[in-house]
Nucleic acid binder design. Structure first.
Lengths: 351, 351
DNA sequence: CTGTTAGCGCTTTCAG
DNA sequence: CTGAAAGCGCTAACAG
């Protein structure tokens, strides 16, 4: 390729790896002291207009970039917010991060985003890293109690998103998973389904447990018993996910499937298509967590949608609020999911 | 885990934010000096086995977390790598980040991920933030020359990913966009298409320019002229993207469309479906950048696939290599895209 | 309004 | 092998 067209520009004027410019350099160049320079550039404390202008100009001319470490060390707090999510490759978490960042940016905080791959060890390592950088707060989709607990013990504010796990007091943003699970199931029951399979992650997270409870509750409200043989718990990276779904279909002969997250929905959908089951005539499918492909496939997937980006924004706002008012009682924000009916659900085939 | 007593005690009311444990605290508790404690815990310098064990134990017992700011300030460099991508919500960038993080984690670097929303101002702000935290290096999907230039001027190693933009020497990872564009177009030409529309982002990035050139090159190789009326340049967040695609279809009556990124492919696909065009009978579609929905819709989308995660990994490796050997000449890694033929392309309807 | 001074927590000479 | 001392760059008291 034509990579050699990339000429090295005139590096003469700027000595390559020059010592970074410090406040002292600026003070010297502007004929003042470091403290005045600090006051002028940070905007805190009294500085004459004249001096401020001169220092601003000097700083710009010299290409001054404040040293965040020095500032953090001195002030014992940073403008960094740590964010640890379970899986960046999953659009749900990516969109959460988008919402968080929007809000933090407006408040001039720096998001430090990390993916912990749903691994307790990695999550704990993240927490430690956030502590090491003296993060002003942490937003986390928790995998294990240890991380939030460690952070809280060190006085770092934590906001849990998507699920509640902490055994310490902290703010949280979730959706009403029980209601979501109930509405998904009730929708199928109302259509006349009586053999509804549930695919749900095999965690003890409140998100999955809530959806499972909703599934039970809907049956109960309808005066129906649940056959636990129709409930399949499948871990995040289970390599045999699709085979287990096939077995479920063969053994339990469900007329409908409720897939309690977007990944399981994708697996279920692929299995159904591969085996030639028609949606919704042969089998109905309801998903949890609306992602773009669900409106692209034919028919579209009926889904319990989450306000994902908004969840991120709210989490960030909780943290900012607490930065202003550390004493405020911990708050649980519970947003509402929405049933969106598309073509993947219909009446069951008469027996 | 430790005593529940301290947790419940501190949850009660006041002094929440206990002073963090420092090296001096550990030294004191272990009856030694801070320097020895530092040597013991960081593993650099001579420490007796006995002292090392004792200090390690004390540090663990007190819940010591090293202060990254102090260390960075002292050592004049950090273990942080800044990563700025154009759009976290786009799976391409998310997967890039996944690859980067994998590799950095193994090398015990901390990724600081930021989305700059393809905005020059935000990108520059990110660069400044990375400078402020004395990042050991930066990986960037560049939007503007200014950011890389600023970083390089301050002696920070930069790796560009996905496109080449810098006017300074730096490492980079791209794919052969020209070849990808050529293969996509040649595939359509070979099928007999003669009116091939091109949807491409309206940037001057090498990625888009390369794909455009490939489109031209394929026509040239086939001895065919390009009608520029079939080329539509559509910006990232263009609200009228789909309307412009409709106009294109109406005005230029293409028998095939080459959508040069996953977003444009999605727009094109939605327009085609909405208007009832059958793929590939009425019109063929080739995309660039394979994402999951392309194997879910019917028919599947023929695509030029990129090794996205691998691109991230390679970028991280370039940075690590340069950390070891700062003097090494700048390297351009160019990976190969792959044509995957699916059902969305076929012979044009005979006129 | 401005300069002096001190010190955040850590690492690194440099002597012992 | 260990400790004392200095200092990274910045800001907050505190005098002037």
């Amino acid at each position: 390729m034509g990579s050699d067209a990339r000429v090295s520009a005139s590096t003469e004027d700027a000595p390559r790896r020059a010592r970074p410019v410090t406040l002292a350099d600026i003070a010297l160049a502007a004929g003042t002291s470091a403290s005045t320079a600090s006051r002028a550039l940070s905007g805190r404390g009294y500085v004459s207009e004249e001096a401020r202008a001169r220092l601003r100009e000097t700083a710009a001319r010299l290409g001054y970039v404040p040293n965040a470490s020095a500032r953090t060390l001195r002030q014992q707090t940073s403008r960094v917010i740590g964010v640890a999510v379970s899986d960046l490759g999953n659009q749900f978490y990516a969109r959460l991060a988008v919402g968080i960042e929007q809000t933090l940016r407006e408040a001039e905080y720096q998001m430090v985003l990390v993916s912990d791959n749903s691994d307790r060890t990695q999550e704990l390592a993240c927490a430690r890293a956030f502590l090491a950088m003296r993060a002003a707060g942490v937003i986390i989709t928790p995998v294990d109690r240890a991380a939030a607990s460690l952070l809280a013990r060190h006085g770092v504010d934590v906001v849990e998103v998507d699920r509640l796990l902490a055994d310490v007091e902290c703010d949280a943003v979730v959706i009403d998973n029980e209601r979501g699970g109930r509405e998904a199931t009730a929708h199928l029951l109302a259509l006349g389904h009586r053999r509804i399979a549930l695919l749900v992650a095999d965690t003890d997270w409140t998100s999955d447990v809530g959806r499972l409870q909703g599934y039970h509750a809907a049956h109960e409200e309808a005066g129906l018993d649940v056959d636990v043989g129709r409930i399949v718990r499948i871990g995040f990276h289970a390599p045999d996910a699709e085979r287990r779904i096939e077995v479920l279909i063969d053994d339990a002969a469900p007329t409908a499937i409720f897939a309690a997250n977007n990944l399981l929905a994708e697996h279920a959908w692929r299995v159904l298509r591969r085996r030639g089951h028609q949606l919704p005539d042969d089998i109905s499918l309801v998903a949890f967590d609306d992602v773009p492909w669900m409106t692209m496939v034919e028919p579209g997937i009926t889904v319990i949608a989450q306000p994902t980006v908004e969840m991120g924004r709210r989490a960030a706002r909780l943290l900012l609020r607490r930065a202003d008012n550390p004493a405020s009682p911990s708050e649980l924000v519970c947003l509402e999911p929405t049933l969106i009916v598309r073509g993947s659900t219909g009446r069951p085939r008469p027996d």
